[in-house]
């Protein structure tokens, strides 16, 4: 049985995931070519068609999943997509970090948070290292919420 405090805490975590997903989606949808360029900069050994498809579909997966998480009704499908997307971001940025690629992660539009492009803060927030650590933390949160959702579903 969850206490009200636990319930509020988990609601905040779900809103956090939803907000990050919507934020990430809006920046990408504003300029799909820029996002596609960011994907290419990761130098992943993937076919060009798959990268183009990802650039087209991924922002909408983020937006829809993020909105459903913010909406708040039981949506294990949205949580599952959030988990998968954050895990993919963690892998993508992690390999870039390990390979020492000096890239902009292409994850979040920092202008929406008032951070000037090209500033030292933007460089750090956009670095593969910070993006990887952030994605790992968000993956862990999504996994925790999904497991909790499953337990709540079984108890209902």
């Amino acid at each position: 049985m969850n206490t009200p405090l636990e319930g509020n805490f988990h609601r905040l975590l779900r809103w956090l995931l939803g907000l990050v997903l919507v934020w990430a989606a809006l920046g990408k949808l504003a300029d799909l070519q820029e996002f596609y360029g960011a994907l290419l900069a990761y130098r992943l050994p993937l076919p060009g068609g798959l990268l183009r498809g990802s650039a087209i579909v991924m922002p909408w997966l983020e937006l829809l999943s993020g909105l459903l998480l913010l909406w708040g009704r039981r949506h294990p499908g949205a949580l599952a997509w959030g988990l998968l997307l954050f895990a993919v971001f963690a892998l993508g940025t992690g390999q870039a970090w390990l390979r020492g690629l000096d890239i902009s992660c292409g994850c979040l539009d920092l202008r929406l948070a008032g951070v000037a492009p090209g500033s030292a803060a933007a460089g750090w927030l956009e670095s593969a290292r910070f993006a990887c650590l952030r994605a790992v933390a968000l993956t862990a949160i999504a996994l925790h919420l999904l497991r909790r959702e499953r337990a709540a579903w079984a108890a209902a």
Partner: peptide, 27 residues
């Protein structure tokens, strides 16, 4: 979970293709 995830993917595919085709900054 599978049903919802599939519906989200289908919606994202439709919206993505339509938006990409209509956006001047599409891929």
């Amino acid at each position: 979970l599978v049903r919802q995830a599939g519906a989200i993917l289908a919606a994202a595919l439709c919206l993505g293709l339509a938006y990409n085709a209509s956006s001047p900054l599409g891929v």
